[in-house]
Amino acid sequence: MSLAFLSTQGAVEGVVAPLASSPMERVARAAGAQFVFRAGWNVAASYGSAQREREACAEAVGWVDLSHVGKLEVQGAPDQLVALGSELAGREVAAAGGGATPIGSGWWCPMAATRVLVLLPPGGGDELRETIAEALPRLAPSASLVDLTSALASLVIVGPRAREVIARFCALDLRPAASQVGSFHPGSVARTPGGILHEGPDRFRLLFGSALGEYLWTVVADAAEQFGGRPVGDEVLMEIDRETDGTSAHA
């Protein structure tokens, strides 16, 4: 594959296993993150106290680095993209501007009529990745597929103060009346190009350029700490998802 060098999928284990790192790894470490090796990535799994992390998510706000979760960009003809998305989602997906559609635990996020961002499931997206690779030549033969996992970093902001925190650095309208769960808002995030996926009640996934990871972490931490927020490991997030059967992340 000519674009294999774009994807972390092509890594091979030699004398030393290649370790993929989030662009926020160093700031997370400085904030007390404890890491686990998961699917080739060094993942900030916790920050020392699952209880405090859960409390932050339930009572104030927490932010979770999900940069390691796979992201694919599909470009192609609008009708082909709708056909592909609809098969993956098991229901009709909207074209651009119509919001995101869940694909299992992942998301189909139209950025424009000819461009879609696919967010793979947090727990490992190999299956969906393979499904897309299989369906692409059949349903969208002229479409292109690029792995943007390393290009886009991601922070989930979760908790009752999530909107208020995001409002400190982002002008996108996330009021309940203007943004339902499943809404996807491409736009400026902290003065940089990005987007926000409204992936659950009081839960938003920020997507932004990975080179801006340290900057975004600083901005989010600065805003969230005013509301009693704290960084949260992805284990707590997964735990919440398990307990809520995924409804915390989906409509």
Partner: peptide, 25 residues
């Protein structure tokens, strides 16, 4: 172990390899 695109180019004038690879690595 990292997937790379290696390019033989030389902005600095010496034998050089410009390696492009996923930023995560």
């Amino acid at each position: 172990g990292v997937p790379c695109l290696a390019m033989r180019i030389g902005f600095v004038g010496e034998v050089g390899y410009e390696l492009h690879f996923p930023a995560a690595y």
